[in-house]
Design a protein around this nucleic acid. Sequence first.
DNA 1: GCATTTAAATTGTCAGACAATTACCTTTCA
DNA 2: TGAAAGGTAATTGTCTGACAATTTAAATGC
Lengths: 242, 242
Amino acid sequence: MKIDPENPADLSAQIAKAIKDAIISGALPVDERLPSEAEMAEHFDVSRSSVREALKRLAAQSLIRTQRGAAGGAFVNRLRFEDAYGQQITTSTLLLSMNDVSFATACEARYALERACAPLAAARRSADHLATMRAEAHRQAQPGLTDAAFCASDVAFHRALVDAAGNPVLSYQLAGAVEAMQPLMNMITFTARSRERIVALHLDIADAIAAHGAADTDAKLAELATYTQQLAQDVIARRRPA
Amino acid sequence: MKIDPENPADLSAQIAKAIKDAIISGALPVDERLPSEAEMAEHFDVSRSSVREALKRLAAQSLIRTQRGAAGGAFVNRLRFEDAYGQQITTSTLLLSMNDVSFATACEARYALERACAPLAAARRSADHLATMRAEAHRQAQPGLTDAAFCASDVAFHRALVDAAGNPVLSYQLAGAVEAMQPLMNMITFTARSRERIVALHLDIADAIAAHGAADTDAKLAELATYTQQLAQDVIARRRPA
DNA sequence: GCATTTAAATTGTCAGACAATTACCTTTCA
DNA sequence: TGAAAGGTAATTGTCTGACAATTTAAATGC
């Protein structure tokens, strides 16, 4: 850990960066205990408040965890894939909502990434993943389902497809792509969507994956992507003249 | 914004979550000014310190920015793709280093995602992206290049390929996949890698993209993936008996 | 009208105090 | 001897008050 310059602004940011760099570089291994707040305050020659604000910045990124008590303190946290999922989804959602990304761009990215998983999913899918996909597809066929529940089930279906690839790195990357799209898909749900067509495609995809058919899976996913894009264009075209 | 319960622990985390939810829900639009720290302290009935720690948590996620002075305060920050790149790379790097993901798994994910970009890159690549890819490939052929510089150029080549797809959402997603792999690739650089083979493949990829050949690009990327996996296996096999 | 000065608002930092929690040690009693 | 009870120290969590630094806006003087 390095000492801060004489610049008396952004002290907590500087301290946070120093500790963060130490964690990334491996100088502070997982579960290592950081010095106490008082010790760090003395070491960096700042107040305990500044140290605390720095630690809160790191805690917000799940880089450390804190524990009260005699043997307590701040510990380097093992960043788990499950923790990163949430951050990924939040960030993706905000990126989409704050940067007016077009539906076409977001949809293209989503299906491009999902199709990247298709061959792996077709090769490795377990009976469990397949059962989840089929269960969700059948749920989507129920007539009384609300739009929100249909969308949630849609997300669950695609999550199962992604997880079927058996690669946690891919699952992490796809979390944002799949789950952040749900609000955008709601945009269409209210108007033009044909649930029957989507359910049929989902069942086709499940069958293709059941048969380990990589090419078939990819083709059906491409069809679903095209249909989704077409729906969006229809909705936009309908809104234009009004 | 809601009020906190009577639980006097994790106050700053609760406040941060309340504000974060308000931002995600859209109740606080971009560039909206939050109340001053003193006002929030009174509103939530906590001390200014707790409010400040909550704000630091949000600042660490680039959700807000702060400004001193009379018309200063905390403002909802527009999350930009460039900001998210860095977070994505950091998170991916830590996930890989802290969860002992196998090289095979990480490499598989990386090339699966990159191949998802290939058809789009082949279709849309600008002269600029193509020039960057070829320039990096030629730089990699220079004899005096250090291993670190070769790796950096390798990353730049693949970044250009991804950016050539012209989809900022894809570029964001791929940032972690491409850049977080650099340390893992260094593992191999020291031993078995043939630069000539890699440069040749890079030039083939650039040619395929120049000719808008989606299938050729994908095939060459698949070849590069296979070669990389093979290298890793060789290194592991060589270390085993020793 | 324009430049200068002054005031006010706001975040950034500091110092000190107390509360809450937890591990560890000591004492006491069976 | 063993175990339960209690006390002690260390550490984070929170509060209060103060001052410094910065920036905008208003007031003032020419």
